[in-house]
Nucleic acid binder design. Structure first.
Lengths: 172, 172
DNA sequence: ATTTTTAATCAGGGGCCCTGATTAAAAGAA
DNA sequence: TTCTTTTAATCAGGGCCCCTGATTAAAAAT
């Protein structure tokens, strides 16, 4: 039987981690970035860039389903990226309803630059701790996948694959 | 000398954790909440509620500095909470520039209800793993505090205190 | 008494996301 | 081949998180 106090300790630390991490992220982009340079890689425009760097030339609809976004949200982010010259839009010739989205050179660079970087706060951990953390996170992730699965079975396969696809590219 | 591969493994798992956690959160609030019921406790309106449950009757300015928000953002969130009858605004009698914010009963209830709950994905961990995770997160958090400290020394004391204050209340 | 600082507000904007209604093109049915 | 339905994308509008800039009212400082 698990120890509730230990669970609460870990939960508290995890909450603290999220809060502190959040402010560190804000701090860094407030100083570094000029304006509107958020792109957290896992949301909005960043998500699109990442999906395209994984698989360029997707249609908006394909992007939407892969990223679990509505077609409207996808359109919004794509249009913003077009304005920033990070992607291009072109009508499909085989199916004129479709719009094909492609990364520009700048877009490709922007998508890959921030990735594959080991965060500072991991560098202070020993090898043993890294192994422990990896193992623990694997368990936690599996548990979360289970939650997704029970709530929305159709989502989990698509999602899990896309996650592992992206991670493979960044970290190997 | 730390093993880069181990670091990357952990980093990957952590990124995966964030992504999966993110979609689980979305999933749960999409099904559970009626409309506009985000309140993630660490952002926006939730932040305000939390700060007030820790220390009721603060002025807007005090809220803003404690939560590291601008006065305008603070005003926005407070006004939204007033509309939801979760807090009240009243002019200070001693300094008529100031507006004192107080939790209503509903606000206090709303602030404390979601907290202090151990997330599902921690329940599958053994006591040993929980201890390991707590220790590792402590190190990671310390590292993040260091980052904040070097970037903005004035922020760290205020922030760290407020975090530990809040966590103490939720988890003890 | 006048200037300066402070607390709050209004106006406006950017980012992330959604629902609803509409258009244009493709695919299916009569 | 028409007629209908489905599909891909768009426009309009909304909610949430947050910021900068300009302005007002009141307190503090000179």
């Amino acid at each position: 039987m698990p120890n509730l106090v230990k669970q609460k300790n870990a939960a508290g630390k995890l909450i603290e981690f999220n809060m502190v991490k959040h402010t560190v992220d804000e701090l860094s982009h407030r100083t570094h970035a000029a304006k509107g340079e958020h792109q957290s890689l896992f949301q909005g425009q960043g998500k699109i860039l990442l999906a395209l760097s994984q698989n360029d030339g997707l249609s908006q609809k394909e992007l939407a389903t892969r990223l679990d976004l509505t077609a409207q949200s996808t359109a919004e982010f794509v249009n913003k990226l077009v304005k920033k010259h990070l992607v291009t839009k072109e009508k499909s010739t085989t199916d004129r309803r479709k719009t094909i989205i492609r990364l520009t050179d700048a877009g490709r660079k922007s998508a890959t630059k921030e990735a594959a970087k080991v965060p500072e706060f991991l560098k202070g951990l020993t090898d043993t701790e890294l192994d422990q953390l990896t193992k623990i996170l694997t368990k936690m992730n599996d548990s979360l996948y289970d939650e997704i699965n029970t709530a929305n079975p159709s989502l989990v396969n698509k999602f899990r694959d896309s996650v592992t696809d992206r991670l493979r590219d960044w970290f190997l």
